[in-house]
Design a protein around this nucleic acid. Structure first.
Lengths: 352, 352
DNA sequence: GATGTTGCGGAAAGCGCTCTCCACCCTAGG
DNA sequence: CCTAGGGTGGAGAGCGCTTTCCGCAACATC
């Protein structure tokens, strides 16, 4: 019976002995190799395994087979709904393929990202999926690329989500296109005096996030197609977080006064920033949606219930995760996939 | 130089050969064992490793050392901010210990949970942390306990977050106490006619979630201490999700009419449900906070900006994750830790 | 009966590491 | 001069598996 006093896991050897067969037969019975095992023997092995509570040592299998069942996912911040939604997609899809996913966090620090990749590389994952946002002209980009190249040289696969073109498998999210459509639609609704809360980076000292940049540029183009221009003085650089949005709006109010100097629409480059911005407006006595329209980007499900309901560009984040895994597993990378954003006009931009 | 054509990872053997030393010396140089290596040799090894882009094979190390650097985390739903906050805490703390965390999702299905544990067990993680919510009288509980017992018999550690007492390391979250304090305070503020949106399970067909049950009971006790009673007809069983909250409120409105028959406070057993409930109220023409007060539980950061700001019991979720890991790593389990919730009264319950 | 075929079990050689043990060199002490 | 002992390198066993290869038996074919 089960040896309750043991303190190290049951091995295949134990099972084989218990079943009275060889290691080879036990192995073949438990993982359905190409080779057949006589039913009687397989039966005995399965029983013995069950009785002993055997569970194959994945590390040993990995060493013997030369391949693991692991996929690594690197995100900026797990608690951020943007990343956790993507993670949910990856984990869900991974499970369908009987893969285990290991996660790490860059904490939005691009130097750490290189370290994390180095650490993850040791796991010999089938693929490394990078969902952490990249910066333009990042000084660590070269180091990252080098580390990833080494990983690929060892047979690994690298998938990048939403970023600059890189010599790896790419999953593009249509930030620019979505933002453009959003900008165009809002301009058509009559908004003329627009301010933008962009992500961090002024282009000089700190480099901007690629995602933020794409959304900023796209949005401006969308507005421009209706003859609306956003002067540089109305583009605020701030953190890519809720607090960043809050502070950005505060800054706007500080600069232009509590009537915002006629600004009728504030576009934040992501939903959590937009929500922070609404709070700041409210705290300054403005009613979002009435005194100033606000729009975001992403369409985070958890934020679906904020009031007024947020106009945004809807991104299928779980699907992004699923597609990323599919891309990682595909034999041939194919052309870079593009996931589109869909404009969702809601009460936070009632129109003028 | 780096062999760019290779397709299988660089091994320690390669490094040793490149450096002109033995496998043993290479191993000792690269991981700082107890044994000394002459500086010159270590230097050569480090250089060779760098040049070849070597990264130690974690699986092989695990097999050789008989121990991994992995911790497994099992959550109900990664995209749910409750779980992702805990996950962030675990991942953050794990990193400080140079551990990698692998995540799996039960999708709130308790049968799947057993399977997931079985799969994770193969990884031989140092610990398995279970954050997935458990049900009272779960028919799969026995199977789960058995699977976990097997894992522990193999030297693994199991940590349970927020649940029934079980013969494993426990991290208790003070759901009952927090709910009681919240109930008491709200009763003191004058609320008398209360309805509760509880989690799923009617106690007969479907078993209730332990978390939900604790919060329900605690809240009732808190009210009772001020002489306020909640009749069973005002306790709605619904899904533990945003949609569950929405439907629960709809049901309340359907039953008691659009004035809610005098109900002045609705307590939802978690924040996402509360937010869903507010939306349902709004969609029915009620103004949350004015026509009906709403309270939640958890204090999810992402939901900090909903309006009216949500009264809730604040749980330090990231800390829960950190403590869970600490508990997993501790030599001696010690007495079950208890993490307290703090009442946060905000505008969604202005008082009467 | 000799000669293939299959079908299946087991021995053993790896997989990429760690770590024990032994060998060797050098210095110090007698 | 010899011996003891500390420091260091390397051979090789072993971790828990997979998988190749060999051998044996049972059966079909001529």
């Amino acid at each position: 019976m089960t040896d309750t006093a043991r303190t190290s896991p049951v091995t295949l050897h134990d099972v084989a002995r218990e079943a009275g067969v060889s290691l080879a037969t036990a192995s073949r019975s438990l993982n359905g190799s190409t080779r057949n095992v006589k039913a009687a023997n397989r039966e005995r092995v399965l029983e013995a395994a069950e009785r002993l509570g055997y569970s194959a040592n994945a590390s040993a299998q990995a060493v013997a087979r030369g391949t693991t069942t692991t996929v690594a996912l690197l995100v900026g911040d797990i608690a951020d709904p943007y990343f956790s939604s993507i993670a949910a997609g990856v984990v869900g899809a991974a499970e369908d393929h009987h893969l285990v996913v290991t996660m790490a966090e860059t904490r939005r620090d691009t130097a750490r990202e290189v370290e994390m990749v180095r650490a993850l590389r040791g796991q010999r994952p089938r693929a490394i999926i990078l969902a952490a946002s990249r910066r333009l002209g990042d000084p660590h980009a070269a180091a990252l690329a080098e580390e990833l190249a080494k990983y690929e040289a060892g047979g690994g696969r690298v998938v990048f989500i939403s970023t600059v073109d890189a010599p790896f498998r790419m999953l593009h999210v249509d930030n620019a296109g979505g933002a453009q459509a959003l900008g165009s639609e809002l301009a058509a609704m009559g908004y003329r005096e627009v301010a933008i809360l962009a992500g961090p980076g002024d282009g000089a000292e700190v480099m901007p996030l690629r995602t933020s940049e794409d959304r900023l540029t796209g949005f401006r183009e969308g507005l421009a197609s209706h003859g609306v221009d956003v002067p540089a003085s109305r583009v605020i650089s701030t953190a890519f977080t809720r607090d960043g949005g809050y502070e950005g709006m505060q800054q706007l109010i500080g600069t232009f006064g509590s009537d915002l100097g006629g600004i009728d629409l504030v576009f934040a480059v992501n939903d959590v920033m937009a929500v922070g911005a609404m709070s700041a407006a409210r705290d300054a006595g403005l009613v979002p949606g009435r005194d100033v329209a606000v729009a975001g980007f992403d369409d985070i499900p958890t934020l679906r219930d904020v009031t007024p309901r947020l106009t945004t560009a809807s991104l299928p984040l779980e699907r992004v995760g699923e597609e990323a895994l599919a891309l990682a597993l595909a034999e041939e990378p194919g052309s870079p996939a593009l996931l589109e954003a869909e404009v969702a006009i809601r009460e936070s931009t009632p129109g003028r």
